[in-house]
Amino acid sequence: MAVPPAGVLAGIADLLHDLPADRGGALWRLSDEGRQLDANIIRMLPAARVAGHVEPDLDVLLCVLSGSGRLETDTGGRQELAAGCVAWLPRGVRRALFADEDGLVYVTVHCRRPGLAIRSAAVAQGGEAACLLNRICPGCDLPAEEIGARYCSRCGSRLPS
């Protein structure tokens, strides 16, 4: 497997330039093949929130790039976030994010999730097992909490159709 080239992948000023004021969600994601990490740059609009949730499998590193807000966890309580803050979100810890009136732009980094494996599944009479790929958020790589949701309740990204 070829090693991807090292170097600058994105510029925050370029990502935010000419971005509509009402556009939140994933602005960028690490997508090179062969990577061991997943990374996303997320923009939360003013007063937006990522509902409390638990990531059961992965530790997440969060670094605030611009704006301000707060992080609430069941182990660390309420903590203020501002540009330059770095937070560690251990797996299994309930967390929620809240953006202040200036919004919040942050990067998350975690181990790459293993790809969805194709396993033998019980085939329903008259068809195949249901595909749930339309419930996987492109912004945070987690399944949507609500069946039929059009947007991720955690990061605000539009879910695949």
Rank of each mutant, 00 (worst) to 15 (best):
V86P: 00
L104C: 10
V105W: 07
A96V: 07
L71Q: 08
H110F: 09
D74E: 13
D100Q: 12
E72Y: 12
R78S: 12
R95W: 04
V107P: 03
A99D: 10
V105H: 10
A99Q: 02
L81M: 09
E72H: 12
L97M: 05
W88Q: 07
D102Y: 05
H110C: 15
G76Q: 14
Q79Y: 01
P114G: 10
L71D: 02
R78Y: 04
R113S: 01
V107K: 04
R78W: 05
C111M: 08
Q79F: 00
Y106T: 08
R91L: 10
E72C: 12
G92V: 09
L104R: 02
R91P: 02
V109I: 15
A82R: 10
A96N: 06
Y106Q: 06
V107F: 04
G103Q: 03
R95V: 13
V86W: 00
P114M: 06
R91A: 13
Q79W: 00
C85I: 00
G92R: 07
T75L: 15
C111K: 02
R91G: 07
R95M: 14
V86F: 04
T108G: 08
V109R: 00
A83N: 00
G84K: 03
A82I: 05
L81E: 01
V107H: 00
R112D: 03
A82D: 05
T75P: 07
L71S: 08
V109L: 14
R113L: 07
R112V: 09
G92K: 06
G84I: 04
